[in-house]
Nucleic acid binder design. Structure first.
Lengths: 384, 384
DNA sequence: CTGAAAGCGCTAACAG
DNA sequence: CTGTTAGCGCTTTCAG
């Protein structure tokens, strides 16, 4: 397929700007100028320089360039896992906006370990990233928040920005930027939707305890319950990973244990996917036997059968905003960071087919009709 | 939420190694040595240096470090789209292996544009990435291949490596590394499976024309057909995007046009997802009315109902191998690149529930029974 | 074990 | 329009 890699180091020294200058009979400053195209250079000179560049196979050294002054032109993003659609969509937004701003995107995966997260912020700072975007719910812990705050100040002192994307601020006068969405409100709306359909025993499933996202969603859920006078039932709250595996395993256990509930509020769509499988395997049906809702509205939510009712979160847009609020645009030097450093994006509930009105006794009437159902999104609050 | 960003540049100059040296009453060389921990330094000295680092909030400059000699400790990865699971899983493998090798991962998205791809290889070269991994099928074009070859040589001359991941070599003596899997063979096996079940009119759906992946999968498909003496039917081949949207739209059109076929070979699982939706919307059922297969075996393939028969490709492992074959391990300096620069990983067909034996007349017998089917993976060649 | 000094390759004034 | 000249912040011989 290819050469056996015999040499590790290049046989012949890599060409530098000086070499190019010599070959083109100009100074290195001139070469720099034609390469950066930000300064007038005579056409013939320019041509000679380009020729020299090609002949020598010269490739500029971004490190030398960064060292000498101009920024590194990179942004960093720290996520739990690039495969998880929640993070993947945000990462896509970050990458695109970075690209549009003429920047490269460095991605780091923590697998949910707060220590790794902090280490990556440091690493990205060392790389002199113009902005580092911390994505997803935060580990809830004073000491940890203090560490994040310290790094935010350090980054800020160096002219870079720490952007909190989908997690709360770490303190009033900590110099961070933030892109948020409403976890509490979405969970409230979703729970209320369930209650409206007659579900009072709803199982809350998944979401790592001690994560801000879980905390907020659960808070919204509980507020809705309280508002309708439904008593809190601790046995109906089962936090855990944000994964299909957790949703599947735990729900299977609960079903086997005959826990009583008529609806499942999965902490996110991934958990809902696992839950739906457990329900199916138990010989039950969604939504006839059990209603199911998720959160995030990732594409898989619409692929699931029945299609999942969930809360739409503008993931990609969050990623975009994260970098746009932190770095100047490529062209227009006109750049307006949000006045207070914070952007808050809207969410809304998306009603699909996974929730049915609860009937006192488990009637199975709708079952045959469902096969022929229309594929249009029903209801007024629909999106997609 | 945060301070209004009043200053762009730091109020006070960022601390450098010299500042730390001064504060600790040592030379900058000593600071460098304790920071890198690769040289004996007296304990008291080391302590003083660390104290100075903390007091000054010193953060090492990775660019200066890279410039001064040691490698940049980064690898680059170029994909079409981070959200597409095919790429996301490979990216995860790359990120993990890079992390394990003590390197940062820079990701670039091309959206399938070969020009952007080449531009990103250059960009990553400028960043002095130790390795750049080009992921996914290649645009089939002589001139393009030449450009890739040129960059491979350039990278190699600088001591870096270009890794081709899931695409063919660009020439015999071009210094690339490669991680491949068998597109042709998988497609052959899958088509053969369909033929065995009695499907002779199979619709091949999706995959950008002019992409090596499409070319290879289609070749395998055709070889299987030919081997069984099934005549090629041009009207049954519909290439297009690797997306659910394409699968959905095109299949809906074909169904509406009454094109005749009993099975669909979707060029990848994403196309299969869209296809399955079109089939459902047409009031037909998989696999009773139409059998369906995909390719890649991304998690969504197992979530789809009925669960999708597909070809398993070791995506994450490919990403891992890509970087492992290109860069030395973090610890062990013992590093063995593949002798010939090439790694080839195995694939296998995963039989699930989306293919049924073709019966002369469209009998609907199995329909009611299917509701109660077991969830275990059937068949001997199953994985997962 | 520690210091001095010479760059790494580029950009950015400042002069011509 | 182009050349000269300093560094940018770090690593790394080479001497103590």
């Amino acid at each position: 397929m290819a050469d056996a890699p015999t040499h590790r180091s290049s046989p012949t020294r890599r060409a530098t700007i000086t070499d190019v200058a010599a070959r083109a009979n100009v100074s290195s400053a001139t070469v720099s100028r034609v390469l950066n195209g930000n300064y007038p250079v005579a056409e013939p000179t320019r041509t000679r320089v380009h020729a020299a560049v090609d002949e020598l196979g010269y490739v500029i050294n971004a490190h030398a360039r960064a060292l000498a002054g101009t920024s590194s032109r990179t942004v960093g993003i720290i996520v739990h896992d690039v495969v998880d659609p929640f993070f993947a969509h945000i990462a896509r937004g970050v990458e695109r906006a970075a690209s549009e701003a003429g920047r490269l995107c460095m991605v780091c995966c923590t697998h949910g370990d707060p220590r790794r997260e902090l280490a990556f912020v440091d690493l990205l700072h060392e790389q002199r990233a113009d902005a580092v975007v911390l994505v997803g719910g935060a580990h809830q812990d004073r000491a940890y928040a203090r560490e994040v705050a310290r790094r935010a100040r350090s980054l800020h002192a160096g002219g870079a920005r720490l952007v909190l994307c989908g997690r709360p601020s770490v303190g009033r006068d900590v110099p961070t930027l933030s892109v948020e969405y409403d976890n509490e409100g979405g969970a409230f709306a979703l729970t209320d939707h369930l209650l409206t359909q007659g579900h009072e025993r709803v199982l809350y499933l998944g979401g790592p305890p001690n994560l801000s996202t879980t905390h907020d969603r659960l808070a919204g859920h509980r507020r809705a319950l309280a508002l309708r006078g439904v008593p809190a039932a601790p046995e109906l709250v089962h936090t855990g990973a944000f994964s299909p595996a957790f949703g599947h395993r735990r729900l299977a256990e609960l079903l086997a244990a005959k826990l009583e509930f008529s609806a499942v509020f999965a902490a996110n769509d991934m958990v809902a996917i696992g839950a739906s499988q457990a329900i199916e395997e138990a010989g039950l049906r969604v939504p006839d036997d059990i209603s199911l809702v998720g959160y995030d509205d990732v594409p898989a939510a619409a692929t699931l059968r029945p299609r999942l009712t969930t809360v739409h979160v503008p993931l990609e847009e969050m990623g975009r905003q994260a970098v746009r609020s932190a770095v100047p645009d490529a062209e227009s030097d006109a750049w307006r960071p949000p006045a207070d450093g914070g952007v808050r994006l809207g969410t809304h509930i998306v009603v699909r087919d996974s929730v049915a009105a609860r009937t006192p006794s488990p009637a199975r009437t709708a079952r045959t009709a469902r096969t022929e159902r229309t594929e249009k999104d029903p209801g007024p609050s629909c999106a997609r």
